[in-house]
Simulated assay, not measured.
Amino acid sequence: MPTPQQIVDFTEPPAPEGRSPFVRPQRVAPVEVVAYDERWPAIAAELDTRIREALGTRVLQLEHVGSTSVPGLPAKPVIDLDLTVADPEREEAWLPQLEAAGFELTVREPWWHGHRCLSLDSPRANLHVFGPTGPEQYKHRIFRDWLRTDAADRSRYAEVKSSAALAATEAGETIMQYNARKAAVIQEIYGRAFRAAGLLD
């Protein structure tokens, strides 16, 4: 398990020289943020079942995270899930099974908590893979649970998502650039969520 300091730390190491995290090139496409869809939890549950059937007991933890996991919050219509496995570096232990279940590896960045990301086109989903000591899964759950309970921050986040999506689309930006437009507000919300969780004074 990560330490509290690791959970609240947002420092990200740069990619090693000459290496890119992207297995599949980033796509430039309009960023679509839509109203909350009541079907999203059921879709996430179906994906949970598909992943567990593919990996069995190699699933140490699997969580629906991101905006589609927060009732009432507008979001890109893409389900985000965090998967914890024993060792992300041992891809032979989990990747072929997920590929057989329809997922495609799109990001590999072992220098950042062993992170891998796999995508699914139907239903649209991103599956983030980490090891058991990674702090990101904790961050994502804390953020999700805070937004589920705090209406003011949920509204604030909805506003920045919509404005960032519009600006990123008009500028022809990637999803990573859209995410950067939200970063300052996200960090503010995280600060309140971390304090509520007892991780910050």
Rank of each mutant, 00 (worst) to 15 (best):
P74L: 01
I51S: 13
D48R: 15
V31N: 03
S67R: 03
V33Y: 00
P74R: 01
E46C: 10
I43S: 06
T49E: 08
H64V: 05
R58M: 08
P77R: 10
S67F: 12
V59Q: 14
W40S: 00
V65E: 08
V70D: 05
P71F: 03
V28L: 07
Q26G: 05
T57C: 04
K76R: 15
P71V: 02
R52Y: 09
G56L: 06
V31G: 04
E32Q: 13
V33G: 04
S67E: 10
R39A: 15
E53T: 07
A42M: 06
W40A: 01
T68H: 07
P41E: 02
R50K: 10
P74F: 00
L60Y: 04
A29E: 13
E53M: 05
V70N: 05
V78C: 15
T57N: 09
V59R: 14
D48T: 15
P41R: 01
E63T: 09
G66M: 05
W40D: 02
L55P: 02
Q26M: 10
Q61L: 15
A35E: 15
V70F: 02
R58S: 14
I79R: 07
L55A: 04
I43V: 15
V28H: 13
A29H: 11
Q26N: 05
I43N: 07
V34S: 13
L62S: 02
K76P: 04
P41C: 00
G66E: 02
S67L: 14
I43W: 08
H64F: 09
T49F: 11
Q26R: 14
G72N: 03
I43F: 03
T49W: 11
S67D: 08
T57L: 11
A29P: 07
A45P: 06
I51H: 15
T68A: 01
A45T: 08
A29N: 11
L62W: 10
A29C: 10
A54R: 05
R27P: 02
T68Q: 06
E38T: 03
Q61I: 04
R50I: 05
V34A: 14
D37R: 11
A54S: 09
